[in-house]
Design a protein around this nucleic acid. Structure first.
Length: 487
RNA sequence: CGGAGCGUGGCGCAGCCCGGUAGCGCACCACAAUGGGGUUGUGGGGGUCGCAAGUUCAAAUCUUGUCGCUCCGACCA
């Protein structure tokens, strides 16, 4: 399409790769599958992080940091947990190199470790080894800790933001004295995730429970938020796990109750990652590039000055109070004085997804006006310069609202209620979500996955399976579920 | 690890079949003009054609080997 971007409706994945690159978000690092997050992409992450960090602090959580390295033996303590992560761990076996005449540098065999070290794929095990020391009494509970960190999962096939060997995330790890409290925590966090996705990222999500085959390795129950991307595939955007007493038992973490009994503590863990940035791109992007929701956009308003060399000084004077006022109103604003043509800049900033653009040139100075253009709509608006702040604020709010509305309409239009397996197959092959009955049998689930590549994204909270039959077997449905092909 | 394809300035590619001076677009540097939807002009820098061996007067091009990458399957926030 324009700017030589690949046609989005034809080759969604080529389009995605180009956008990530050309909008200046990220690139692959030298080690295969690793990601470099460039400044513009990182600012996006910082904005998301700041919003969620405030949410969890407001709900009584605190931040801490645990080590990157985990003794290999820790991973084996929880049976399902090893099972889930063993195949994708980076392992440290030696502690130094030495120079070699032929090969330059080699691993020094003398430095081999007694016990190998795992680079964390997730931190449950280190954290619970510490909780054992910290928790003795019900008075020590709950423990509500979050950490912002990187984790490593040695993925075979990677894609920027969606799946890389190393990624940034937050992981919360809480300990409670009752199962009810742990369950409540799990659900409360899921609600924060929903709020983050919908109210800030403008991504509508389904909330619900994962099936046993899709749940986190070591969890009793996994809840998730699931979103539909622009190509109608599903993306898991966040998960919240009720770990029951699994990790407490594995790491022998007990506490004394009020009536002096000893009990294992109840645990949760939950996480969202830089994958959310991928979700934003895949949800809101269009033929011209990225579209960023104003509430997380690193730049909310870009100003394009239009002036000949000799007019530059006048223009700077004209703009100075306007920009100052915008900054004072906490609007993230940037003046682009680079030496490109205006048309080039328009396209450039549209690609980068900036929600609002202001054009200012000699014409506007004469009329004491500015021109505003929305990223999500055609047309331009000429307004008096004294009305800039009001208009900018109003338009940003409006764009935020429009993005979520558009995304929700798209998702709803492509979510189908289905009874027959033939309909199921035809919809899945064209792309989209299917709501249908499921007999609760994991073999049924596996069969459908094999047939169609679709998986159960979640058992939605608002399910109503009473009248339903299983889409594959025709047996009485145990649950109403949402099926889709996923990233 | 199975199936397909690709390695030529920073990026994207042509040249290879039929051996003979390494080319194009973009990007980059300099100067000038231009500036309200990817703006021109002029000049300039940068590549032992993935690597190795072979055939030949001569190899980006032919032969053999080797290494690397991408895409599709099994794994996955």
């Amino acid at each position: 399409m324009s700017q030589g971007l690949p046609d989005r409706s034809n080759d969604f994945s080529a389009w995605y790769t180009q956008i990530v690159n050309r909008a200046g978000l990220a690139d692959y690092g030298p080690v295969k599958g690793t990601m470099v997050i460039k400044p513009y992409g990182y600012q996006l992450w910082e904005n998301i992080r700041e919003i969620f960090d405030k949410m969890i602090k407001d709900t009584g959580h605190v931040n801490a940091y645990f080590p990157l390295f985990i003794p290999k033996s820790f991973l084996a303590k929880e049976a399902e947990h090893v099972e889930g992560f063993a195949k994708e761990c980076a392992v440290v076996t030696h502690t130094r190199l030495k120079s070699d005449d032929l090969k330059g540098v080699v691993v020094d065999p003398e430095s081999k470790l007694e016990e190998e070290i795992i680079v964390r794929p997730t931190s449950e095990t280190v954290i619970w080894s510490m909780y054992k020391k910290w928790i003795q009494s019900h008075r020590d509970l709950p423990v509500l800790i979050n950490q912002w960190a990187n984790v490593v999962r040695w993925e075979m096939r990677t894609r920027l933001f969606l799946r890389t060997s190393e990624f940034l995330w937050q992981e919360g790890h809480t300990a409670h004295s009752t199962p009810e409290e742990a369950e409540q925590e799990t659900l409360d966090i899921l609600e924060l995730y929903r709020e983050l996705a919908e109210d800030y990222l403008a991504i509508p999500v389904f909330t619900g429970l994962k099936t046993d085959s899709e749940k986190f390795a070591g969890a009793e129950r996994t809840y998730c938020i699931e979103a539909m991307m622009g190509d109608k595939r599903a993306l898991q955007a966040g998960t919240s796990h009720n770990l029951g007493q699994n990790f407490a038992k594995a790491f022998d973490v007990t506490f004394q109750t009020k009536d002096n009994k000893e009990e294992f503590v109840w645990a949760t863990s939950w996480g969202i990652s830089t994958r959310l940035i991928g979700a934003v791109i895949l949800t809101h992007g269009d033929d011209k590039g990225l579209r960023l929701p104003p509430r997380i956009a690193p730049i909310q308003l870009v100003i394009i000055p239009i002036a000949k060399n000799e007019e530059e000084k006048d223009l700077k004077n004209y703009l100075e109070p306007i920009t100052a006022a915008l900054k004072k109103s906490k609007i993230r604003v940037y003046e682009d004085w680079t030496n490109n043509s205006p048309g080039f800049k328009f396209n450039e900033w549209e690609m980068k997804g900036v929600p609002l653009r202001m054009e200012v040139g000699p014409r506007d100075i004469k009329e004491q006006k500015v021109v505003l253009a929305r990223r999500d709509e055609k047309g331009k608006l000429s307004i008096p310069k004294d009305d800039v702040i009001d208009n900018v604020q109003r338009l940003l709010d409006n764009i935020q609202l429009k993005l979520i509305t558009q995304a929700r309409d798209f998702r709803d239009k492509n979510t189908h209620i289905v009874k027959e397996y033939d309909d199921f197959k035809s919809i899945i092959s064209k792309g989209g979500f299917v709501r249908c009955g499921w007999d609760g049998n994991s073999e049924t689930e596996a069969k459908i996955k094999q047939d169609t590549k679709a998986t159960i994204r979640c058992i939605p909270f608002d399910e109503d399976p009473k009248e339903l039959t299983c889409v594959l077997t025709g047996h009485k449905a145990k649950h109403e579920v949402i099926f889709a092909r996923a990233y």
